[in-house]
Design a protein around this nucleic acid. Sequence first.
DNA 1: AGCACGCCGACT
DNA 2: GTCGGCGTGCTC
Length: 726
Amino acid sequence: MAYLRVAVDVPLPTLFDYRWDGRADAALGRLALVPFGRRQTIGVVLEVASKPAVAPERVKPALRLIEDIPPLSAEILDLLRFCSDYYHHPIGEVVHNALPQGLRAIRSSVRKQAAAFALAEAGEAALADGALRRAPALAALLERIANCQSVYLANLAAAERRHLKVLRDRGYVREWICPEAAREAPQSAVAPPPVLTQEQSAVLRAIAQSASGFRPWLLQGVTGSGKTEVYLRLVDSVLRGRGQVLLLVPEISLTPQLEERVRNRFPGHGIVMLHSGLSNEIRTRNWLAAQSGEAAIVLGTRSAVFVPMPQLQLIVVDEEHDASYKQLDAVRYCARDLAIWRARQRAIPVVLGSATPSLESFYAAQRGRYAVLRLTQRVTSHVHPRITLVPTTGERLIEGFAAALTRAIAERLRNDQQVLVFINRRGYSPVLYCSACTWTAGCPRCSARLVLHTTRPRLVCHHCGHAEAVAITCPQCGGLDLQPIGHGTQRIESALHRVFPQARLLRIDRDTTQGARHWPQMRRAIEDRQVDLLIGTQLLAKGHDFPALSLVCVLNADQSLYSTDFRASEQLFAQLMQVAGRAGRGEVPGDVLIQTAFPAHPLYQAVYAQSYEAFAQTLLSERRAAGFPPFVHQAMLRAESGKMAQTIAFLESAVRLGEGISEGVTIFDPAPAVMARLNGRERAQLLVQSSSRTRLHRFLDQWLTALRANAATSARWVIDVDPLEV
DNA sequence: AGCACGCCGACT
DNA sequence: GTCGGCGTGCTC
């Protein structure tokens, strides 16, 4: 008689034991159907034991093991356990977060067509004229489809499926085939790999000559220096040895371009994507292909760090500094950090690539924990973009533009080159303001202002999705003079349209790409020179290669300087370097104009000099002096409830629970979150930190146990280890 | 998280 | 008189 210790998808920090009469060794890592309370659920067998951990009479028998899927390897189970321990998150949720949702319903789902639905024109009209006023459930579902992206049938609850059917019958939504499923792989002739620069060769030589085994490499390469080519050469050598490679990228919008490049380079090798833009069915299929070894290359976002790869020999984390590697809900893990753990576990190299490494990585390199590789020269015209800071003080801005910008744009357009105007804010204007009484439009559910949108005229909350009709008169004083203050992409677009009526404009933000769905067509339009002037948010800042783009204008960067987050300047610097890197990737040298009220600010001076090293060194000294990461390790207890006083009271009780056990750990005072009110919930946070990671984790273990035992239902809470937002 | 049990208000 | 609100408690 054996006992299976099963991870069940519940927020409890324990495994659940089940009796099992069959062969026990074959059960490890398998999915198991088990009774749980009054229902049945699918869990994962994490351990097999000869004795139960609870009283034997409480133990029920497991119903059956799922034999259709190979078991998870001991290696993956270890990774999941580590993730649960390190991030202090319930093991069951960690396990289920790591697996593709389709796995549990494997047989029914894999065979089915990828059935997804997107908003049709009739649906858009219905939303606009309020035809569904009397059917709030239908309206809510339609709104959801309209706001985010397409909705997959498999992701909907039974009631929602019925609603979807109604929407389809009325023609409000149409079926939408996931591109991954519909794509016919066009196998063009394999292009010969480009000739390597001296630096690239040197980097590859260094990696090739190093001893095998665990080795973290920090590949610091300026934008355009050919980091991707280095990755591809490394992939090539792994493939020659019949190994598998995991390539992590920060966002979905980056995958199609890289995917194309990888597919063209390695035709005949199994290459699969793993990201949230795929249907459950396809994600499951790709996941299984990786697990079986059939896929030699996995190209994925954050969650792909958990995919089983029996022949894994190399992990690449591209743009390692990017914040999207950190998951901000559910299990708050960092895929970059888990990738490093996984590489150590397997004793393989891991390459972290970035033009502007995170200070954590920079510091690790300085202490000799990572080996540094540098690419300092651009591959193409050998010219770094020229950066100019355009002061706005004393300047009369016209529609948000200093004269120097308008002139530069006009000149590039005359010379038939492309221009990118970068402004990291969606919508028309971020504030709607009453000039009579100073009222501004605010979100009823969040402590945020509503953003005015004009393409579909609405006031929208960018935090909770709340949308309402645009006020005509001030709700406070009845005044008629409501003014949009500040600029977003839509306003910049219409301003540019007035100034350059002959130019072909394309606005690229979450509203026009519909969650990256329209992005491939847009990218093609840019490449085919059907566009002269691009207006984009950070979606456009990353990784793309547009040879005809020779001028980048940055508006509104100063915004971040006011942030209270100690990481803001690190992130702004990275972002500016990244956008700047979009300019001049072809034959024409690139120019970057950054409009700012503080051209003398050290951050802008560092951007101007394009000197990452010096700036990183400065920030690092500041962090050391202030006692911030990476010199201390932090965890944030985040709590929310209906009332701020209640949330704070909960955190205060948490402080008291921690006081006796906090040796070597500093517990700060509870404070309201930056977004104090979100979605009608009032949020606050409590920072704990220690110079010793071990001490911090020992403390967290005890503290969270006490917190759970005290069943404080007054607030809902989560722990965030290595928080990015403080 | 689900899903039960359990005890107090407005409806056929 | 019942349907149903969400407080509290458990899940091997």
